[in-house]
Design a protein around this nucleic acid. Structure first.
Lengths: 124, 124, 124, 124
DNA sequence: GTGGTCTAGACCACA
DNA sequence: GTGGTCTAGACCACC
């Protein structure tokens, strides 16, 4: 299975599960209508409680990423990937605004951030 | 007083206090050796529990921003502002790396972030 | 066969089967004494477990819609259609009462519902 | 307290709690920014598990009805009541469409439903 | 086998 | 005191 849970990660486990499933959906590893591992299966593989996985799946369903049918299992919902990209862009914008804002008081200029991006962008 | 606390802000109150004091130190509003309001004074003004302020001051002392002398009060430590800037830059780098990383799976390119920075940079 | 099962429908499959058979009886597609497909046959056609069909037929028999004779198959019971209509009316009444009741707290008036009915009634 | 839980109600307890809080918000009994009873308090009063209330509050927060701040408690969010009304109208529309649809096969006409509404509307 | 609900109890961060 | 996370285990409906 493609999911890794780290106790060092400050995010709660259920969120780590959610984020990695979201990513898999976003990059196409999990296609619409694909069946997710059952709650029990996933719990067994990751060696964490069924309840934690249940929580993650329930939240993912609330957010519209997956559909769950009692007795059948959970399936990837049919999501508009362009819409996801737009949402993520808005999110990034907010995060960058925060960085700019707090950076300003420390003498960090927008150009400093652009430098960082260029540097990080090449490194991969 | 220059501090504003909002219960709607997802950051815990003690962190809001810390961040605003850090900012004031960073931008020179609070100069080295300046005396901070006493814990009780600050608690009264912000209408927050003394315990919360105590926690904020204690953490600030741990991080080296302020010094507390029993019976006298708390004072801004003598901090090298260039060092602060460097630390903040490292922090920003990490945050941007995260944004780049998760953005990648959604088809967000480094250039998209640069666009955002340019856009936000002009707006102020 | 006239039955369609959707795993996306929030109703459990056995209920979807029941409802569609009930409808066929109500509108005369299935006349009294008509023979229903055998459990296995139906299961094959709908690509559903036999157990699910068995459950649906058993419930239909309990509710008096069909009769099952071991070895012979299942048959539509001789139902009074006017009685069915009356039962359905009582059911509708309860549902509408609920809608009116919860709607009231949101400022929804009976006339709003009448508007909706008129609008929906024309559209078909 | 204004909440009643009935074991006879087919809705799960957490949903009964949610619905009644939603209603209280909708009809103005709970005004924006009002503080809700704490999870433990509510659990004590209703004599159900804290976890069930926790579940209800978490879902209400997800749906945007309340805001919860660790250590502070839960508060009614500032919701647009007209928006609520619109949402409820859409919901009602769907329910009425269903009633019309299944009723049709039993010989129930839209006018029958209008009659029911008029009858029920006067009775209060 | 699947998921859904309800329960109990531990441990943590925050005010 | 507040809520948040993680756990275990029971019981139910559905496939």
């Amino acid at each position: 299975m493609f999911i890794l849970i780290s106790p060092l990660n400050p995010d709660p486990m259920y969120k780590q599960v959610m984020d990695q499933i979201k990513d898999a959906i976003a990059d196409g590893t999990l296609k619409p209508e694909a069946k997710l591992p059952s709650i029990r299966e996933m719990a067994r593989e990751l060696k964490i409680s069924e309840i934690t996985i249940k929580r993650a799946y329930a939240d993912l369903e609330n957010e519209g990423y997956i559909l769950t049918r009692s007795g059948l299992g959970s399936f990837v919902a049919d999501i508009n990937r362009e819409k996801l990209r737009q949402e993520k862009l808005v999110e990034s914008r907010d995060e960058i605004r925060k960085i700019l804002h707090t950076g300003k008081r420390f003498g960090i200029e927008p150009s400093d951030l652009v430098d960082i991006i260029n540097e990080l962008g090449e490194e991969e």
